[in-house]
Amino acid sequence: MSVLSVNGLTVSFTTDGGTLTALRDVSFDIPDQRIVGVVGESGCGKSTLINAILGLLADNGRIDAGSVLFQNDRELTRLGDSDMRALRGQRISTVFQDPMGALNPVLSVGHQMINVQYRSGRSKAEKIARAVEMLRKVRIPDADTALSRYPHQFSGGMKQRIAIAMALMMEPALLIADEPTTALDATLEVATIELLKELQRDIGCSVLFISHHLGVIAELCDEVIVMYAGEVVERGTTRQVFNDPRHPYTFRLLDCDPARQHQRVRHLPTIPGEIPDLRRRPEGCIFAARCHRVHYACMRTPPVTEVGNGHAARCWLAGNPETVKVTA
């Protein structure tokens, strides 16, 4: 069963320079109790995707086509504001990159952790007990007394863990984590990932994990979606995508990560060129202008080609892995 099923989602924004198509024909599933990663570079539509799912698109944005089905019964793109509010924070919760932005600086941590339980029907004492329990779960020292402290009295890593505790307080079916470890130091980053994994198993929720850090995705996620310029170019299990990339962009992106080069190289691989102007989306394959394997067929938009169990890529060469992996 899927917690979330996104199908053919197309989102555009009205700007001074014309209509900008930020997401085009995006489809993927988040299965029950799985961690699905979304990886892609700046401008690939990761944030728009989250906002579209949560019904938080800016005023100039609209969903042109497609559906976002939550737990097989609620169509989020057609849900009214109050129904959506009932879902957010309860059934679908979020953790963002900046923990300070997620916490109110003038309210104590306990105050905020009790507030987020306003729909739970619990008594005040139960809410406090639940808050303490969650703080213990995310390993905040002295959880009982931590409730009366304010966000600035915690370190960055602790604040992010408090934000995670708040997001999971209502045991949501889906946690959306938008670059939650990007602002943390390396040692804290891995500790936070390990914590997230443990809590996900504990609560039994699914996680949509957005990151541009390939190492973090490889470590945490069961499945991964690779996005480029508002399109899903490849999806599959993390092993399938990282070990056997079938889209030239995925291959090149993995190749660029200095962590993949075990020998010291003085010249690091790059992907020359820039993402296309999304107000004037080119015909055919979206990656064609930067692709080292571009050929005449790429003038037409390639279909999503299924190459293995759940592994698919939007490339004419997807069925021909040896060709994809040849560098120019």
Binding site: S155, G157, M158, A186, T187, L188, E189, V190, A191, I193, E194, H213, L214, G215, V216, I217, A218, E219, T238, R239, F242, N243, L254, D257, A259, R260
Partner: peptide, 19 residues
């Protein structure tokens, strides 16, 4: 602590108390 983009990599991690 540097996660590597390799899902098969065996992880022998030295974890530090965070503070």
């Amino acid at each position: 602590a540097n996660p590597e983009p390799d899902p098969d990599k065996a992880r022998d991690r030295i974890s530090l108390p965070a503070e």
